[in-house]
Design a binder for these strands. Sequence first.
DNA 1: TGACAAAGTTGGAACGTTCCAATTATTAAC
DNA 2: GTTAATAATTGGAACGTTCCAACTTTGTCA
Lengths: 348, 348
Amino acid sequence: MGKGRVTVIDIAKAAGVSKSTVSLVLQASPLVNESTRTKVNAVMRELGYVYNRGAANLRQANARSKIIGIVVNDLTNSFFAELAVGVDTVVQSAGFVQFLSNTSESIDRQREVIASMREHGVSGLIISPARGTEAVDLKPLVMAGIPVVLVVRNIPGAKVSSLVSDNHAGTFAAVEHLAALGHSRIAFVGGFPDTAVFDERLGGYRDAMSKTSTGFQEELVVSSAPSRAGGVDALVRAMAMPEPPTAAVCFNDAVAFGVCDGLRARRIEPGKDFAVVGFDDVIEAKTTVPALTTISVDPQGIGQRAAQMLLKQINAGKPEAESAVSSVRLIVRESCGAAMNKPGRKMA
Amino acid sequence: MGKGRVTVIDIAKAAGVSKSTVSLVLQASPLVNESTRTKVNAVMRELGYVYNRGAANLRQANARSKIIGIVVNDLTNSFFAELAVGVDTVVQSAGFVQFLSNTSESIDRQREVIASMREHGVSGLIISPARGTEAVDLKPLVMAGIPVVLVVRNIPGAKVSSLVSDNHAGTFAAVEHLAALGHSRIAFVGGFPDTAVFDERLGGYRDAMSKTSTGFQEELVVSSAPSRAGGVDALVRAMAMPEPPTAAVCFNDAVAFGVCDGLRARRIEPGKDFAVVGFDDVIEAKTTVPALTTISVDPQGIGQRAAQMLLKQINAGKPEAESAVSSVRLIVRESCGAAMNKPGRKMA
DNA sequence: TGACAAAGTTGGAACGTTCCAATTATTAAC
DNA sequence: GTTAATAATTGGAACGTTCCAACTTTGTCA
């Protein structure tokens, strides 16, 4: 036992049929008689047969393997972990298996990982590209006809599908909400200016501010690293202005948490003396104190939808590139000061 | 272009050598002349050759594929995301690629996932088993001689390697620290009582409490779901006691965060009026306010070590089961009230 | 010059599966 | 009772690679 692998031929011998018949049973063909099918299945269980997918998709050069690859740029960020979970659920129920790798924002690592996945014959790829990825990096994939769906970050010029969240609409809604609450000096805080996501979120902020009485003012844009520490840092600079803001639309939730930390350090209570809105709706947003008002992008939902787009492309013969925008919505909680009548929190 | 796959034979024709020579180049054999090697490599680049691992490890039935599988029970928990990152780093540098799947604590899903990985010919498996997994579930793997390393949760009776953290020592140290700070009513909060991990952590707590003047008291053990919401819930029950605790050793960091939320909801400041200690040292522990005192188990480190154990087993012919315990250490931050002289936070 | 070794190279068989065309067994129709 | 149609089964070739044993070329030594 455990010596040579049990093959389809062993099963055939033991069941007294040919290997072709066993093969037909394996793929649940209607051609095979019910009694033979049950007998073959019994023998397979008895001998502990394990299907060899490598051999199988060696033969069927057309239909690729049942693997889909997913590469993310930062698995330690819970946003991407949840995205991966979303992908996994739909991919698994379609009989595929997921191949996950983490690039840690390294382009080199990303190249290696993608090459490795090609060697294993993935049917398709879901990629959240590392910073600095260019269209040319994806060229070999589209040339080989491997379906690709980009998520979170789009790459201009790449002829592949993409699914990004509606960044413009998100920050636009955030500004509108804060303006309706009576704020006029609203800052845009955090994020690196050289990314597409930043441009889009800033654009929504700018367009919404232009419609207010005070209009858009460049000085209210304070960039920083898109992290908690970056948020603290940016807030310090924002409050040093001659006329400091009374509210902030943040690049993402991590920055928003940092802004709250910074506010408390100056004895300003977020949600009471100063309004904060985040972006992403990470899982901690609803349980933190004060609960964070934020733009919900539903990472699991994005993962599921991306997986569906990919499966559609895989099933269609020709990979037809398709661009989708995932809608977002404003989740009003406590940090913007709107929910003043919540029990257990007294407001001025 | 993009029609039929480029094979080793195409390369051979184009380079004017035999397929055998190309194969030798692929495996960097010293037998082949330097000039042929460079020529073959050039042709491969030119034609866009992609190695077909499926075909390769079909032939070499002995040496399995370069895939290692990792299955976790809850990828949305950042502990496991980081563990996966740790595994990925060492596995990648050994030329392997990682196959990650999430079971969401479902035994059925786990069975499917493991079967799928076997079909793809994984060389080894790192498993954080779903709740309720039994030794018999792993039997087929050990029978087939596939190396397995269990992490986080051990399974009694399974003849496979395991790497768990020193749960007993962790909670023991936490209690000792709190007792040294003057606390005597110290609760053990959170976790499901029917798991091995719970037993071990509770054991450390009990043994340490027995050494204090007040001794171990059953009523101070308040179990709950091992999540943030569970922590909130457990705290409510703990504070309803006639003589409520003044400190809590929590089952994990998620529970600890929930306890802090619950305390603030009753206007009790964690780290000032009440001491909280977590377990795991997830990445948010050091940035949250107040920074969480916790038992560090270094998830990335565990992932790396587990991967090394697995690679060792893969390289050795015979998979020799080996049990290891990963040491833990107490990280003192703010939530236990020990760091009273931190700037920016005034304490009573 | 011949024998021998070392260095490179090579054709064919094998791995475990699927596909195809061909075969046999069964039933239906006249 | 022959033919036709249908149902079920089958052997062999093919997929892209690696391994093995055999081969050619070149160099070395007596």
